[in-house]
Amino acid sequence: MILETSNITKHFGGLKAVSGVNLKIAPGAIHSIIGPNGAGKTTLFNLITGAIPPAAGHVVFDGNDVTGWSPERLAKVGLARTFQRTSIFKNLSVVENVALAIRSREGVSRSIWQSTASEQAIVSEAMDVLGKVGLRGRDKDKAGALAHGYQRALDIAIGLALKPKLILMDEPLAGMSRGDRETIAALITELRASLGVTIVVVEHDVAMVMRLSDRITVMQHGEVIADAPPAEIRDNEAVRKAYLHGSFAA
């Protein structure tokens, strides 16, 4: 397993946001986490990526116990994420957005001298990453000026530039047009195929998730109620019940 959480728990006041979740992610998988609003998916993401500390439980990533590690430390060992609300550096150029991540990965973010050759190498790598997400022609644009779908793609590109072993995507399809959704979904499949990176997705679009994923974890009220391949999830009684009044009728 590349990522494993054991009994991870977080309460906000009296609310059990995440309660004793055991998650196992196989290397190279596209693993989706679904569940009704307020099921604790995003909180689980925040616990895994170090944005908030867990009240109990452990996170093991790539053989290391990373419980309580800061986001910057996790990024350095190969755990990247994208955000529900697209999170990019809006006033910087598209290529610079990606170059920042590359420099961070290379550990040169603090230097004040940089040879032209090494800067060129970074830019050309950044262009390659942009090429993978279909942004190659937009490299000089201001990131904030990109259309919504492209911004989401850039968010993913920034994550990929870290050459992560695993990338967590928080609702990559949310708020997008049908066309954009197809593009991003295709991108996710393509990334796994070409880079072998493990992808964990939190998503509302269940139809898309069924198509995309190797395995699906279903959460409700902060707990896991099912964890199985898509075909089994489709027929799972507990999942049907959880979603009966929910946003989908899959």
Partner: peptide
């Protein structure tokens, strides 16, 4: 690179941490 990393913090501190 230092100056650009600084700008990244000014632009979006949270994202900067996650890279």
């Amino acid at each position: 690179p230092l100056g650009k990393a600084w700008l990244a913090i000014r632009e979006n501190t949270e994202r900067a941490r996650f890279i």
